[in-house]
């Protein structure tokens, strides 16, 4: 039975074109001489030069990277704990509430998270004098709050796949619960932890709305700079920035794919 696959494949092709053509155009026009994005007037790398002289943008990028890395690290710890709780302590009082709390940030609109956290920080500052001003700390806390939910989902899926008898075998051989977790469980879920870290990092680096709410004056993240520039219309510098981001991501994915293939070949 040979099925006609061409209608399906043409939808697939259209879908990928839809996803990738805008990005490719963005990259193409980052090498355009002209300031007008739609008119091609010759190859040039001058926008990259301008990008690297744009200290405001570079400062914002550095701040964003620092926030993203701190956020990802905390989010992995908290998200993994939450995943442990959901998979390993199946029955505890308030479990439904716990799961609701873990899943809600996944779909909660950014404006709500941003607004509510800002109001919390304002109230806390009034009440207990902390946080003193808003910036790195408040943005990081806000990002951890929603990133940990993503990490929890990823780690939980991995924990559910894990063969319970591996941990039982370790316990049977005399390993205490903490030893079992550190020597058996953690190494086996390590790929999920890495994926969770990278995802949390990206989510943080990508966030405009929440950061806009909880940032203070003088703490401008990269998306905030991009946003204010984009609002004024198309800017070739942003194209250049986009190209660099796409290049980094593609490179990372290629390395990951090669590493994966190497791992498979070794087996």
């Amino acid at each position: 039975m040979k099925r006609q696959r061409w209608p399906l494949l043409s939808v697939l092709a259209f879908g990928y074109a839809f996803l990738y053509v805008p990005i490719l155009l963005l990259i193409l026009y980052s090498f355009n001489e002209s300031r007008l994005v739609t008119v091609w007037s010759g190859f040039s790398t001058k926008w990259y030069g301008e990008l690297f002289r744009n200290t405001q943008l570079l400062d914002a990028a550095w701040l964003s990277v620092r926030i993203a890395a701190t956020n990802a690290t905390f989010a992995v710890v908290l998200g993994t704990l939450a995943a442990n709780a959901m998979v390993r302590h199946r029955h505890f009082r308030g479990r439904t509430g716990f799961e609701l709390l873990i899943t809600a940030p996944l779909v909660m609109p950014d404006v709500i998270i941003g607004l509510s956290l800002l109001l919390l920080f304002v109230a806390m500052q009034q009440g207990i004098g902390w946080p003193d001003g808003r910036g790195f700390t408040t943005i990081t806390i806000a990002h951890i709050t929603f990133s940990m939910a993503y990490v929890a989902v990823i780690v939980r899926a991995r924990l559910l796949q894990l063969d319970r008898s591996l941990e039982e075998a370790a316990m049977d051989l005399g390993a205490r619960p903490l030893t079992v977790y550190l020597r058996i469980t953690l190494p086996l879920i390590a790929p999920a932890l890495l994926a969770g870290w990278l995802l949390a990092f990206t989510l943080s680096l990508d966030d405009l709305v929440i950061a806009s709410f909880v940032a203070g004056p003088g703490s401008t993240t990269l998306p905030m700079v991009i946003y204010s520039s984009v609002r004024l219309g198309v800017s070739p510098q942003i194209n250049a920035l986009a190209t660099i981001i796409v290049a980094i991501v593609t490179l990372a994915v290629l390395i990951a794919a090669l590493a994966l293939r190497g791992e498979r070949a070794r087996r």
């Binding site: 063969d163 008898s165 591996l166 039982e168 075998a169 370790a170 058996i184 086996l188």
Partner: peptide
């Protein structure tokens, strides 16, 4: 163990 549960 039935599945042997060898640590991979």
């Amino acid at each position: 163990f039935q599945s042997y549960a060898l640590f991979p």
